[in-house]
Nucleic acid binder design. Structure first.
Length: 611
DNA sequence: GCCGTTTTCGGCCCGACTGTTTTCAGTCG
């Protein structure tokens, strides 16, 4: 399927990001300074983090230049190149690199085990210009004649190429998390006394996962060996990449997906340092180590040590901290930064220590959520009756549950005609009247039709306690049309929540690409909440868009969109994403006391800015 | 290439593991 080109301006960011990545890779392949290439990579990341099209960052070139240079990591050179791209559609340095370096070499860098040095050697010595050339040369036996290339390396490259064809994309968190939990629990059952935790980007709440990271600690070396053996001998393992005393690395095949998994092993006294190191992000680790240096200390995965001696753990050094992550932050004069915030965007040096402390004090936590305002019953495509939903909500400790079945246009999902909706609402209200421990609300998930009108007339919407308005069809509209469509829903006085605003499916469907800033401004003005749909296949809005919403101070609704009991468990995915955006609990309507929630539902203008 | 409560020049995180080597380069996270 061709990628939807419904958003020309954001393609500018994508193209620029790619240009800087290729600049970096190209310099590496040419053997240039690794600091220059690292710098280009940092610029590429910074561009990838932008939510607005880069050419719309300023009204004129001077303003654009100033805004660009204010972004950490983007200096004079990168600014010049970006402006050059905006004006001419290409960057001379980038074009030159592409002329000097065969395009296939960039793909070769993606082959696990092949780095810039090896690719350069293959290119210069054997004329290898891409994956097909490499396959041929591996078969010819000539690769083995190169320096530092032996039989084992050739064998590893063969299986790496095979792995690469099976892992075109990163794994959506919905698939990665169950696998990681299973691996974790398997290790825990092998050594019940061991501490075993999931680390890596999965712990940070990233929506797609490149590989799985686990950390385990046990005081007994024999127990650690048993953990390592269990890990590399798992039935799903297809290749063992490394198997050492402290680190094991394997490739797994599960449910039709191939993914790499790494296990880090150590002493309980260093568990916090290891967990911290293996959780990342890489940028956060670098930052923490730099801060440690500022204190005249050294941070590594064994702990925080006094002095600047390399490998202090080997010289009988006793760490100042290491058993728990919190000790590391404390010893470096920082507040504990939760895993979801260990990204460049929340760098303490960038946001300021005071602002960071304030953000952490207000940051949303899963146990603060007491309401789910978007769920489905058997009236449309849900699995449970109203009575069953009430039982589930009670068991899960909710104070408020809204049943929001589909509207009439969603025929396949069993959307309700107006008469059926009214009967359904009456049934919900009757059941609600007999409850004293749960507020049960009658609502609907109303389709936002392609032209921005809603699937029920206003007088019907007015009869409901909660209206979630969501786009379900025409999800390839252009940016301007999509923005107009969603703005119309946000401005409707009967709409409380804009449900899964883009309609994207992680890794599969791009969905609408509206002007997020315009949506946030309107939502803020009208007191409408933007949904963070917690279904891990959706996570819509995503963390970057939600960060914009947080900056503007919009109301946000984190709802599960549950169609079954198990799907109420999606909440944790939603909360992790919300934390990645720095969402304060108070901005999330699902944390509000039922009384306050009712007031807002009765008149959402009480939630609008400046009221 | 970027950056500065040590610096506008001189640095830029730290360690595990493998495979090919007789002491370590390359890759990875």
């Amino acid at each position: 399927m061709a990628a939807a080109r419904n958003d020309v301006s954001n393609d500018v960011n994508k193209a620029l990001q790619r240009a800087f990545e290729e600049l970096a890779d190209g310099l590496d392949l040419l053997g240039e300074s690794s600091f220059r290439s690292a710098s280009h990579r940092r610029v590429a990341r910074a561009i990838g983090d932008l939510t607005a099209p880069i050419d719309q960052l300023g009204d004129d070139p001077a303003q654009l230049r100033a805004r660009l240079e204010a972004i950490p990591g983007i200096g004079e050179g990168a600014t010049r190149r970006i402006l050059e791209f905006v004006e001419h559609g290409e960057i001379a340095d980038h074009v030159e690199i592409l002329e000097r370096v065969p395009g296939g070499l960039f793909q070769l860098l993606q082959v696990p085990g092949l780095g810039p040095k090896a690719v350069r050697t293959l290119w210069q010595e054997l004329g290898v210009q891409g994956v097909d050339d490499l396959r041929r040369e591996l078969d010819s036996g000539r690769v083995e004649s190169l320096p530092r290339m032996g039989r084992k390396t050739v064998q590893n490259l063969r299986s790496a190429l095979e792995f690469l064809t099976r892992t075109r994309d990163r794994l959506p968190v919905a698939l990665a998390m169950p696998l990681a939990l299973d691996l974790r629990d398997g290790l825990r059952s092998v050594e019940p006394e061991a501490r075993v935790e999931i680390a890596g980007s999965l712990r940070r709440g990233v929506e797609t996962i490149g590989d799985l990271d686990l950390v385990a600690a046990h005081h007994d070396p024999a127990a650690r060996r048993r953990l390592a053996e269990a890990f590399v001998n798992d039935g799903r393992v297809t290749d063992v990449l490394a198997s050492g005393e402290r680190k094991c690395s394997v490739r797994l095949s599960a449910g039709g997906h191939a993914i790499q998994a790494d296990l880090r092993l150590g002493e309980p006294a260093a568990f916090g340092a290891a967990l911290h190191y293996f959780t990342g992000s890489k940028e956060h680790n670098v930052l923490m180590r730099q801060i440690a240096i500022g204190f005249g200390r050294r941070l590594n995965e064994y702990g925080l040590f006094e002095g600047d001696e390399p490998r202090p753990q080997d010289h009988g050094g006793t760490p100042l901290a290491g058993a728990e992550e919190a000790e590391l932050y404390d010893a470096l004069g920082l507040p504990f930064i939760p895993a979801e915030l260990r990204e460049e965007a929340f760098d303490p040096a960038r946001v300021g220590l005071e602002a960071l402390r304030d953000l952490l004090a207000r940051l949303i936590d899963e146990d603060q959520i007491v309401a789910d305002l978007h769920t489905h019953s058997t009236a449309s495509d849900g699995r449970h009756s109203l009575e069953e939903l009430v039982a589930i909500a009670r068991r899960r400790g909710l104070a408020v549950l809204a049943v929001t079945d589909h509207s009439r246009s969603s025929v396949l999902a069993g959307g309700l005609e107006i008469d059926a909706l009214r009967e359904h609402v009456a049934a919900i209200r009757e059941l609600a009247a007999g409850l004293d421990d749960l507020v049960l609300l009658a609502g609907a998930e109303v389709d936002i039709l392609p032209d921005g009108s809603l699937d029920y007339p206003d007088e019907v919407l007015a009869e409901l306690d909660v209206v979630v308005a969501s786009p379900h069809v025409s999800l390839s509209q252009d940016r301007a049309t999509a923005t107009r469509r969603l703005l119309a829903a946000i401005r409707n006085p009967h709409v409380h929540i804009l449900g899964h605003p883009t309609g994207r499916i992680v890794g599969r469907r791009r969905g609408l690409q509206p002007d997020i800033d315009a949506l946030c401004a309107a939502a803020s003005e009208h007191g409408t909440a933007l949904e963070l749909n917690a279904n891990p296949r959706r996570l819509d809005l995503d963390d970057a868009a939600l960060r914009r919403a947080v900056e503007v101070g919009c109301l946000v609704a984190i709802d599960t969109d549950a169609h079954s009991d198990a799907q109420f468990g999606y909440l944790s995915y939603g909360v992790r994403t919300a934390r990645r955006a720095g969402l304060p609990a108070d901005s999330c309507v699902n944390t509000w006391e039922p009384e306050r929630l009712r007031d807002w539902l009765a008149d959402k203008s009480v939630g609008a800015r400046g009221r």
